[in-house]
């Protein structure tokens, strides 16, 4: 059976008939071609699929697309404004936080939430904000550094 989905994705209205058991991740990737969000575990353990659902970071692999009905979804593709990168994206590049880059979109979305919610994130907040994101390459050091840099930038 299909569901008539109406929602906002990256600020644009989207209307589609979709299978009701389709996950938001598969909807984004397979129906809209927004392949920035990744599926690495499909169990909510790795955070690679993190998107914002009405401003809160969620695992798109565990959210049914139909549950986004009437709501607003934001993905990594919408972080940059045309060619201008978001400060957190630039910081990820500058610190080398994107090594293999596979966890990067999810981490950017989780980190962005922290910066949106807290002007001066404490170290512990910072760690907690990305504890749901696994990175197998960096050991997290450069990621923490990047978020800190982006936080300082937002303050300035």
């Amino acid at each position: 059976m299909t569901w008539h989905l109406e929602c906002t994705i990256n600020d644009a209205p989207v209307t589609r008939d979709i299978p009701e058991d389709l996950t938001l991740l598969d909807f984004l990737r397979d129906h809209l071609g927004l392949t920035g969000s990744k599926g690495a575990c499909l169990e909510g353990e790795c955070g690679s699929c993190t998107v914002h659902l009405d401003d809160a970071p969620v695992c798109s692999c565990l959210t049914l697309a139909a549950q986004a009905h009437g709501r607003s979804v934001c993905t990594v593709e919408a972080l940059a404004e045309s060619t201008t990168l978001d400060p957190i994206q630039q910081a990820f590049i500058d610190t080398g936080a994107a090594q293999c880059g596979y966890c990067t979109p999810g981490l950017l979305m989780a980190g962005r939430t922290l910066l949106d919610r807290t002007a001066f994130p404490e170290a512990n907040h910072l760690l907690t904000s990305i504890e749901g994101n696994l990175c197998r390459c960096t050991g997290y050091a450069s990621i923490i550094e990047a978020i800190q840099i982006a936080a300082n930038e937002s303050k300035a």
Binding site: E20, D21, T23, L42, E43, C61, T63, L64, A66, Q67
Partner: peptide, 25 residues
């Protein structure tokens, strides 16, 4: 279905819902 953090894990593991879905959110 509420948050789906139990239910959809099962779905992704191949357990079909099999029944209609009542989204409470």
């Amino acid at each position: 279905i509420s948050g789906g953090t139990d239910l959809v894990v099962g779905l992704n593991r191949g357990q079909s819902l099999g029944v209609d879905v009542l989204d409470l959110t």
